[in-house]
Design a protein around this nucleic acid. Structure first.
Lengths: 214, 214
DNA sequence: CCGCATCCTCATGGATACTG
DNA sequence: CAGTATCCATGAGGATGCGG
């Protein structure tokens, strides 16, 4: 059921023994966005075979990376990361940052789920700090993604319903990524917004990467 | 030859399209220690099939992660990381740090190469900074590993020949890892050394993890 | 020896049908 | 909806061959 161990007394090899099998880190990515049920995982992992998803979930649970819970609606099962599993965010962030050269090629024929911007924005904005908290909502493909930056760093989450009164930046996936990666300037992106208040949030979140005091 | 793409417009998925196949990150780990020839890679990757190693090297070269060079001795081929490939260190560091819970089980029946302590020590000491540079040599299984910490962080490398005059800590693999991970105190390790000068270096390198000014 | 290429076997992944 | 069972395609693992 599980992949074969490398049999090496090495941290990297042992980490890969746990999460190195195909699909495993993508499942963790999905659960990093939030707890999910089997069917929801299938949506975020189009093209995974159901038997593989079931196998991987068992493996990850057995290794202590994820756990089964009761879903909010009572009797169904939901999967969620354990504290140890959540600590994979640092590694996933690093891999996402490393991938920026191959993301510049654009979407091509790949599938896309706007919720994937959650880990991406977190990774690319990981070093952001602000003394006064700032919130910006990025609207991509009809999904509202809230990016809040404070003294602890960025906090990114999907909003279930459109916010009112918040600064909103409507963007394509490519634009949102390029902005977070610093490949295009906030000035360029801000042009698409008409609200002056939005401009401040856009510049604060996506501005130069050194620590900002304001 | 190469594994199948996930077909997702997501940084993590694209990163895994490049380095997610079995053995790939372990090959990068070996090259992070230093450029190596085919045969040297086989030593650091016991149990890899030679055709797989050849395949993976082609894949990684094709993706721009590694490159073929002329070895030092002239006409042979050596493999080395490209600048982009070197940037995988951040991700590998994160995976190594994440693996500490599964490293505490000890070596068991796994194979071991003391050179694997190079990425491990780098990962576990990554946040160390000192205003005045400190150098400590860790001797494990007859291999001398130099750990130099300065204002830029730790610099870890294998020494080809024993140093003279430097502080040396003789340790088992488990002890070296536990020390770097903060699982045991420098006092405990320092007991194995008899040289008072060594004690300073041991405490500076392996002491509490907050930034040290001295 | 080193750096692969070829062949063969079998475990794993992938697609689809099926069941509680 | 949440998986399990089945079957086929593919890639890993291991042995061996072979030119430089």
């Amino acid at each position: 059921m599980a992949g074969k161990s490398y049999g090496q007394f090495c941290g990297l090899a042992r980490a890969l023994d746990v999460v190195g099998d195909r699909w495993n880190l993508l499942i963790v990515r999905e659960l990093l966005i939030g707890p999910a049920r089997f069917g929801q995982l299938r949506v975020g992992l189009p093209s995974i075979a159901t038997n593989l998803l079931a196998d991987r979930l068992k493996d990850l649970e057995g290794h202590g990376v994820i756990e089964r819970r009761l879903a909010e609606d009572g009797n169904a099962i939901a999967y969620a990361l354990t504290p140890w599993g959540q600590q994979l965010q640092e590694a996933i962030d690093a891999l996402i940052r490393w991938s920026t050269p191959v993301m510049r090629y654009g979407r091509r024929a790949d599938s896309f789920d706007p919720r994937w911007l959650v880990p991406a924005l977190h990774a690319l904005l990981a070093d952001r700090r602000t003394s006064t908290p700032v919130t910006l909502v990025v609207l991509v493909d009809g999904i509202h993604i809230q990016v809040a930056v404070d003294g602890d760093g960025p906090h990114v989450q999907v909003l279930d319903e459109p916010p009112d009164g918040a600064a909103v930046l409507r963007a394509t996936p490519e634009t949102a990524l390029a902005l977070a990666a610093g490949a295009i300037t906030p000035e360029h992106a801000a042009a698409v917004s008409d609200n002056p208040a939005d401009q401040v949030a856009i510049h604060t979140v996506f501005g130069p990467s050194f620590t900002r005091s304001e």
